[in-house]
Simulated scan of single mutants.
Amino acid sequence: MAKINLERRAKIGRERRARTRAQIVEAGAMLFAKGSAKALTVDAVAEAAGVAKGTFYYHFQNIEELAAAVTVQLRRSFDDVLTPARTEMRDPIARLSVAFTQSLEKAILDTGWARLVIQTSETRKEFGRSVRDNIKAEVAEAIAQGRVTVQDPELAADILVGIWLQVTRGILERVAPPELSNQALEAALRAIGSARPKSRSP
């Protein structure tokens, strides 16, 4: 009789549960992008994920808990897009520029992601705060360097986020014209009284 490897069996079980949870989160993200989390049901998520209703409740207590998991995943997706290119940049305006243009480029390429960002920004306040806090920190550094004429970091963050969200809504309504992200960036920087750095080198 073959010896049972309990450790291997436990590992397989953990991996299977992680895959199932990720499947449910992905289905939730897709459905949240289409409408409000308040209107979403466990039945709809379970059907979209291809799992039983009981499986949903094994991983999440309710839709609100699933929405929180989707928000965490969305925040990580922002980090995945922005962190590699920004890590070595010392210039706060260069970091803001990269964040603005690369996230717009992702919205153009992945409209499902763009819809989820718009929906989440309207319904999950903690997501909006997280994004704004990062932008506000960059703006505060730029203000300290005399690089921005809008002297209130809160106001400057509101302007940048507002422009980004509105441009993203436009991406969802029509075909994005060439150079959209660069043109939007120029407009956003002008709105806070700044200019794009001539070089993005560290």
Rank of each mutant, 00 (worst) to 15 (best):
V81T: 15
P177T: 09
S97T: 12
T111E: 15
V167D: 04
I159C: 10
M1W: 07
A52C: 10
Q183C: 00
S103I: 02
V72A: 14
F127T: 05
T55L: 02
E65S: 12
D133R: 06
T120I: 11
A10L: 14
I143R: 00
G170D: 04
Y57V: 13
A10I: 06
R21E: 15
I118A: 08
R169T: 11
L109M: 10
W113Y: 14
A94K: 02
F127Q: 03
A140C: 02
A195D: 15
I93R: 00
L160Q: 02
H59T: 13
R147V: 02
N5T: 08
E122S: 11
A2H: 11
V139L: 10
R174Y: 02
E64C: 01
I135L: 14
V42P: 03
V72F: 04
G54K: 09
L189N: 07
E173W: 00
R190P: 09
G54H: 09
A140D: 14
I159N: 09
G28E: 03
A44E: 15
T111A: 03
D79L: 11
Q119S: 13
Q151N: 07
R147Q: 15
E65T: 13
Q73V: 05
S130N: 03
A156F: 05
E88Y: 08
F56H: 08
V167M: 04
T123W: 00
L40H: 03
S201G: 07
P84Y: 11
P92T: 09
